[in-house]
Write a protein that binds this DNA or RNA. Structure first.
Lengths: 213, 213
DNA sequence: GCAGAGCGGAACGATCCGTTCCACTGTTAT
DNA sequence: ATAACAGTGGAACGGATCGTTCCGCTCTGC
């Protein structure tokens, strides 16, 4: 329990600063496990009182928004670096593996619906979509992604991976990775594939979660 | 409003018999859209009063169980006929397409957790698992399913397809069919596939929903 | 020492929802 | 005809849940 750093650290400020991150981490864990968990559960998990929460966020909604927006930001950041990857297929699949592994998609999708998105988040979401679209375009142009695949198929892929869940979080990550591998094998270009059925999913169809009204 | 059949039909019995099915249909629709919808929503959707519901079921739980068990029964029935199909691959894929299209899996999985399963349901679920296991075995033996695939991968596949959702139910069906096609392409045997990662999912791991305590 | 930032957690108030209850309607049997 | 009743609609009740507020306490920085 004794803190032994050079910097002044036993102070209240220190404790408060630590709580900042502890609370965010707890919130992420709790709301990922159950998007409509009560706010008291977050406080309990963080080992703090409810006041510590309300001191930082005006209410549940703001906390949720913060979580979701952070996820969105991480998402776009990863997409950016993936675009820097030389091999288009490696860029796309590596990106998807990262996103699925970090469970970012649950953050942005499971949580949507539990709060009303801000216009700013809508903008970030749109930007994220554009980045992934470019990843898809590159992979299509490179001939590594099957020609009838579409941006919307990637969106669906992420949702479907987020649906894979078992009680143990670590095992969940493994199972998602396996499921993703299956999907990527289906997405890879192969000779003699029969075309994917039905009208391909379009962006507006899939973005209904971000509608503001 | 005037009933004009030959049989005696304006009777209260008639109305009651119709309500039997109307209520079940409404319950299916409502609970598929939102597993924790209030019971009043079911009554409203069915166009009946709450009494009509409570006359038939002792409570919400019993209704949910009935819905889920019906789904389970449909599931096993389809699996049975799929086993009669000569071509193992066609049997497996056709079966999955039917299940996904009828949204049976949402019935059995989304709803689980909203009620405590009966031992009987556990038995039916186990039987369903065995049937699918045989479908998988056949496909593996026939060489049409990739050799490193496992029963659990099929379970995961169904969960992931059930996760594909857009506001319009009809469109949801189309998108699920497309997503399933993707997954099946990933599941098909191909030369030069890299093995699926991680320890393969096992049955007990995936059946945690049916635990009784 | 003292002012106050930061905190814990009880208490409050609103909402939601499963279930019960009762008055009413049409049917069937006497 | 009329009594008894199965079937029904929907208001009302009671319990549970949860977001938020509030008050008293602690410990720090001056």
């Amino acid at each position: 329990m004794t803190e032994t750093d050079a910097a002044p650290l036993s102070g209240r400020k220190q404790q408060a600063a630590r709580n900042d991150t502890v609370i965010l981490d707890a919130a992420r864990e709790v709301f990922l496990a159950d998007p409509k968990a009560p706010i008291a559960a977050v406080a309990a998990r963080a080992g703090v009182g409810i006041s510590a929460l309300y001191r930082r966020y005006s209410g549940k909604e703001e906390l949720l928004r913060r979580l979701c927006h952070d996820g969105l930001l991480l998402f776009t950041a990863r997409a950016q670096t993936a675009l820097a990857e030389a091999d288009p297929w490696q860029g796309l699949t590596g990106f998807l593996q990262e996103i699925v592994d970090a469970d970012v998609h649950s953050l942005t999708v499971h949580l949507a619906g539990t709060f009303t998105p801000t216009p700013e988040m809508g903008a970030t979401a749109r930007q994220a979509g554009e980045l992934v679209a470019r990843l898809v375009q590159r992979a299509l142009a490179g001939g590594s992604l099957r020609p009838d695949a579409v941006l919307g198929d990637i969106t669906l892929l992420l949702e479907s991976c987020a649906a894979v869940r078992v009680p143990d979080p670590a095992r969940t990550r493994e199972l998602r990775a396996r499921h993703l591998a299956l999907l990527l094998d289906g997405l890879a270009a192969e000779p003699d594939r029969t075309a994917l059925p039905g009208p391909a999913p379009t962006a507006p169809e899939l973005n209904w979660r971000w509608r503001t009204p």
